[in-house]
Computed example of a mutant assay.
Amino acid sequence: MKVSVIIPVYKVERFIVRCAVSLLEQTLSDVEYIFVDDATPDDSIRLLQEVIAHYPNRKHQVTLLRHSVNRGLPAARNTGLAVAKGEYVFHCDSDDFLELDMLEQLYTAADQGNADIVWCDWWLSFEKNERYMKQPGYSTPMEALKGMLSGVMKFNVWNKLVRRVLYVENKIEFPSGYGMGEDMTMIRLFARARKVVYLPKAFYHYVQLNAGAFSKTYSKQHLVDVQHNASVILGDLKELFGKQLEKEMAFFLLDVKFPFLITDDVAKYQLWQSLYPEANPYIMQNKRLSLRSRCLQWLAWKHQYWAVKLYYICVYRMVYGVIYR
């Protein structure tokens, strides 16, 4: 198989049909689909099986694995990775959907460029409309790695096609038990890639029905997860590169805690203040990041919370509450 697609399934009965159809109708034929039932308590699996039955030509390419208890997203990805046989691996979240030529386009770019990793743009999809999310292009893995650490290139798993041997040879897995920030794992893969390719087109639809979901559902466990995952990434990078990326690693810590500023909750601003204070002096040095984002962090650093809250109300709520919804 050219591509192994790993799809964790948990409480997605509202979305699974659209997701599965967009996968099974892909124009690339040599694909294996690995659905991982993470002990979902709803009708997701029944609906999935009904969809699969409508594609008898794909049936032999579909594997359905089951967890006896809910183990979380990272563990489900690992379960899929353990049985994947494709030359490349693609991760799809089961509440999202793909353009029908996504896998073919990504694989062609990888094959022609002999790339270990290919990434592309994506659509941020709301109830009524979508926003095109442009990604930066880089010609080398190191430049891409610096882009991710600086916060200008997202380390999402679902817009990237990764050569499977990168996982296997480097024993890279997702952080089982630490779901928040688990996609930081992409950074570890880029750090070991020999060649990368950027495809400047959006194929993936990332469904976001509640733009404020993070600040509303945040828990202490989320903080534990994020700190654990960030620590793993920094330890890995230090082992690989020593102090070569010292400045970029400070930018990374700023990016990790940045979501705590996208809210009107002052308690979150104070949490931002307490997290990784050693990174704050680097705020204005991150020239890759927009001046607006740097200024927002600088204001938080200087305890100007009124300005941070004003930004959230006037800008963020306007963009994701009025323009995109």
Results as ranks from 00 to 15, higher is better:
residue 261 L to V: 09
residue 50 E to P: 01
residue 65 L to K: 07
residue 278 E to Q: 15
residue 43 D to F: 08
residue 264 D to F: 00
residue 239 E to L: 05
residue 177 G to L: 08
residue 116 D to A: 08
residue 256 V to Q: 10
residue 106 L to Y: 02
residue 309 K to E: 11
residue 101 D to Y: 06
residue 28 L to C: 12
residue 253 L to V: 04
residue 77 R to S: 06
residue 131 R to Q: 15
residue 4 S to W: 10
residue 94 S to K: 08
residue 82 A to H: 10
residue 227 Q to V: 11
residue 291 L to T: 09
residue 51 V to I: 09
residue 9 V to M: 11
residue 67 H to I: 07
residue 312 Y to C: 08
residue 71 R to V: 15
residue 31 V to H: 05
residue 314 C to Q: 10
residue 99 E to W: 06
residue 159 N to I: 13
residue 72 G to I: 10
residue 193 A to H: 06
residue 166 L to N: 09
residue 250 A to H: 09
residue 57 N to D: 11
residue 263 T to C: 06
residue 53 A to R: 13
residue 209 L to Q: 09
residue 107 Y to Q: 05
residue 323 I to R: 14
residue 40 T to I: 07
residue 24 L to Q: 14
residue 94 S to Q: 09
residue 146 K to G: 00
residue 319 V to T: 13
residue 118 V to F: 02
residue 260 F to P: 00
residue 122 W to S: 09
residue 160 K to W: 10
residue 141 P to I: 06
residue 201 K to E: 13
residue 177 G to K: 05
residue 115 A to R: 09
residue 151 G to Y: 02
residue 153 M to K: 12
residue 130 E to A: 11
residue 179 G to H: 05
residue 148 M to V: 01
residue 177 G to I: 04
residue 183 D to W: 07
residue 222 H to E: 02
residue 43 D to H: 15
residue 157 V to R: 06
residue 189 L to C: 14
